[in-house]
Design a protein around this nucleic acid. Structure first.
Length: 423
RNA sequence: GUGGUUAUAGUUCAGCGGUAGAACGCCUGACUGUGGAUCAGGAUGUCGUGGGUUCAAAUCCCACUAGCCACCCCA
C-alpha cells in the first residue's frame, strides 16, 4: 500500500503532461516579454492581513478558502490565494513608483485555495498574471485584454469567448446597488435562499444566480451600464473602441461580477466553450482603489489572472497540437572492451556541441541499448564496437529508417547535425 | 461546506459469497554487433483503510479516506 499520498486537490505533473506546461509557459512568457512586462517573483506566503484587506473580508476567498496558519513566532501566515495583492504589496514595499510609471509586471506560480476539488478546480493551482500599475488610461485596459487574447490564441485555443463589463467606480456603484435592491426587493420572497442572503451582502451577485427562476428575474434587472457616471462610461467606451480596432471579439455582459472586491470599471472574463462547470480560463479587470487600500499612494491599475490548469484542459478539449522537442537526438551505443571510455568521450563532445546525446547509465548489452534508444525516441544512434575501435570510425544509424553508415570520427558533429536536419 | 458517483496489477477494466483475471505496459528470450513488427516465457496485487455479517468476503452491511462530477464560488 502507498503510505504517502498527495494532499487532496494537488497534482504531480510529469511525463507527457509536462509538455503542455512547457508549451503554455514558453508562449505566455515570450508574449508577456514582447509587451515589455517584466517578471516579478513574490513569496508564496504572505501576512494574512494582506488578503483580508486586499481581496475583501466579505469575499468567499477570504471567508472560507484561505490556507492560513500561525508560524512559530505567532504571526498569521497565508498561502497566497491569488497574485494581485502580493504584486501590489511588492510594488509598494519596493517603492517601484520611483522607477517611473507605469510599471508592467507579470508573475507565474502556484496559488492555494481551500476548496472541494472538481474538474478545473484544485487546491493548489497555477496562474500567469500581469499587472500595469499607474495608468488610468483605457489603453492600459485594452492592452491587458489584447495581450491575454494573444496568449490564449498563441497557445492554440480557438473555442473561447471574451465577456466584458464595467462595474463602475464607488460613486456610480452606490447608485446602482440602490436600484438593484429596489428591483429585487419585489421578488425577494420567491427567490432562492442564497439570493436572500446576497441581497444584503452583495446585491450584484443576485445577477449571477444559476437557479432558473432567479435567472429570469435577473434578466429584467437594471443594468449597471445604465448607471455608470460619465467618466466610467467614457472609459468603457474607449476600451471597447480599442478592442474593436484590434479585432478582438467580445461580448458585453452586464452580469459579470468578479468575486474579488477590488475591481472598478473594467471587468472581463475569458470563457472556454468546451469545458465543464469551471469554464473561466482567465479573468481580470481594473482596480483603481487597491494600491491605496493596501497603504500605497493612489495608483490606478489593471491586470489579469490566467489559470494554467484550465488552459491545459481547454487545449486537450480542442485537441491542440504543438511541436514538442525530442528528449534525445543521438543514443551512443557501445559494446566491447574499451568502448565505454570512447563512448563517454563522444557523448561529452556531442553535448558540448549542442546535441542531446544519451549514453546508457545502466548496464545493457547492444540489443538492450537499441531497444532503449527506440523506447525513448532517439532519432539517431552511434555505434561504438570493436570494429569501430580498431578501424577508427563510427557507425551512425538512422533510427527511423534503419539506415546505417560509417563516419569518420572528425566529422561526427557535422554529420549528426546534418542528419538531424533531415529527420 | 452540501450532494451524486467510484475505489481490484504501473494503466484501463472484468470478476459480485468458495482460496485473484484480461488487455496494454514492463522484464527475458527467439536474434552471442542492432531497436521498432511477430512469437514464446516471466514479474507485479495483504482487491482504498478500519470494523461488522458468514463455516467462508474483492464480492453483502456500516464508517472513514481518496478520486471523479455537480452545487457554491472561482483560475
Amino acid at each position: 500500500m502507498d503510505e504517502y499520498k498527495r494532499i487532496k486537490g494537488t497534482q504531480d505533473i510529469y511525463g507527457s503532461e509536462i509538455d503542455y506546461w512547457n508549451q503554455v509557459e514558453k508562449t505566455a512568457k515570450s508574449i508577456l516579454e514582447k509587451y515589455a512586462f517584466k517578471e516579478l517573483r513574490t513569496p508564496i506566503i504572505e501576512p494574512t492581513e494582506l488578503f483580508n484587506r486586499g481581496i475583501g473580508n466579505e469575499t468567499d476567498i477570504v471567508k472560507k478558502e484561505m490556507y492560513t496558519f500561525e508560524d512559530k513566532g505567532g504571526r498569521s501566515i497565508t498561502l497566497r490565494p491569488e497574485g494581485t495583492a502580493p504584486a501590489v504589496r511588492a510594488y509598494i514595499e519596493n517603492s517601484m513608483i520611483n522607477s517611473g510609471l507605469p510599471i508592467k509586471l507579470f508573475y507565474f506560480g502556484p496559488m492555494f485555495r481551500y476548496e472541494k476539488p472538481q474538474s478545473g478546480r484544485l487546491r493548489q493551482f497555477h496562474q500567469f498574471g500581469a499587472e500595469i500599475f499607474g495608468s488610468d488610461y483605457p489603453l492600459a485596459d485594452a492592452e491587458i485584454i489584447i495581450m491575454l487574447n494573444n496568449i490564449l490564441s498563441s497557445v492554440g485555443l480557438r473555442n473561447y469567448r471574451l465577456k466584458i463589463n464595467s462595474v463602475g467606480c464607488p460613486k456610480c456603484r452606490a447608485e446602482y446597488r440602490k436600484a438593484l435592491k429596489e428591483y429585487f426587493g419585489k421578488y425577494l420572497g420567491e427567490m432562492c435562499e442564497d439570493c436572500q442572503s446576497r441581497y444584503e451582502k452583495n446585491p450584484m451577485r443576485l445577477l449571477d444566480c444559476k437557479v432558473q427562476k432567479d435567472k429570469e428575474y435577473a434578466r429584467e434587472a437594471p443594468s449597471i451600464l445604465d448607471y455608470l457616471c460619465e467618466e466610467c462610461r467614457d472609459h468603457f467606451a474607449n476600451v471597447k473602441k480599442y478592442l474593436d480596432l484590434s479585432h478582438v471579439i467580445y461580448e458585453v455582459d452586464s452580469r459579470i461580477v468578479r468575486g474579488l472586491d477590488y475591481y472598478t470599471k473594467t471587468a472581463f472574463e475569458f470563457e472556454h466553450l468546451d469545458l465543464g462547470a469551471q469554464a473561466v480560463i482567465a479573468g481580470g479587470g481594473r482596480y483603481d482603489g487597491l494600491v491605496e487600500e493596501i497603504g500605497g499612494p493612489s495608483t490606478p491599475s489593471v491586470g489579469f489572472g490566467m489559470g494554467v490548469e484550465r488552459v491545459i484542459l481547454a487545449m486537450k478539449a480542442e485537441k491542440v497540437q504543438f511541436l514538442c522537442e525530442n528528449d534525445v537526438d543521438v543514443y551512443i551505443v557501445h559494446s566491447g572492451k574499451g568502448t565505454e571510455e570512447q563512448a563517454l568521450e563522444l557523448t561529452s563532445k556531442l553535448r558540448s556541441d549542442g546535441i542531446k546525446a544519451y549514453i546508457s547509465v545502466v548496464k545493457r548489452n547492444m540489443s538492450g541499448q537499441f531497444k532503449h534508444a527506440n523506447k525513448i525516441g532517439a532519432r539517431l544512434s552511434i555505434v561504438i564496437g570493436e570494429d569501430e575501435l580498431t578501424n577508427n570510425f563510427y557507425t551512425v544509424k538512422n533510427m527511423v529508417t534503419g539506415d546505417q553508415s560509417q563516419v569518420e570520427k572528425e566529422w561526427v558533429t557535422d554529420i549528426i547535425k546534418e542528419k538531424l536536419e533531415g529527420i
